[in-house]
Simulated scan of single mutants.
Amino acid sequence: MSKDQPTSGSRLGRRNDPERREKIIQACLQVIAEVGVTGTSHRKVAAQAGVPLGAMTYYFDGMQDLLHSAFSELATRVSDDFERLMDTATDKQSACEKVYERILQASSGYDDELVLSHELYTLATREPAFRTITSEWMRRSRVSLERHFDPLTARLLDATIEGVTIHRALDAQPRDPEEIRAAIARVTGVPSFSS
Rank of each mutant, 00 (worst) to 15 (best):
E19R: 13
L145K: 10
R126K: 12
K3Q: 15
A46Q: 07
S41T: 00
L85A: 13
Y110Q: 05
T76F: 05
D91V: 10
I166F: 06
F130L: 01
G189S: 03
S79L: 03
G36E: 03
S69W: 00
Q173P: 00
G109N: 02
K44A: 15
F60L: 01
E136K: 13
D111T: 00
A159M: 11
A154R: 13
S194T: 08
A172V: 05
T57K: 08
D65A: 08
Y58W: 10
M56L: 13
H118L: 14
L116T: 02
E22W: 01
E146D: 08
L157T: 08
V51C: 13
R147N: 11
D61E: 12
I24H: 03
E119M: 00
R181S: 13
A70G: 04
E97V: 11
K98T: 07
L12H: 11
D171V: 02
A89E: 07
S72H: 10
S141T: 14
D80A: 11
S69V: 00
R175A: 05
R140A: 11
L170D: 06
E34L: 02
L85S: 12
R21P: 06
V99M: 06
C28A: 04
S192T: 14
A46G: 05
A106T: 10
H42V: 02
S94F: 08
G189D: 01
P6C: 04
R181E: 11
Y121F: 10
A47T: 14
R20K: 15
Y100S: 14
P52K: 14
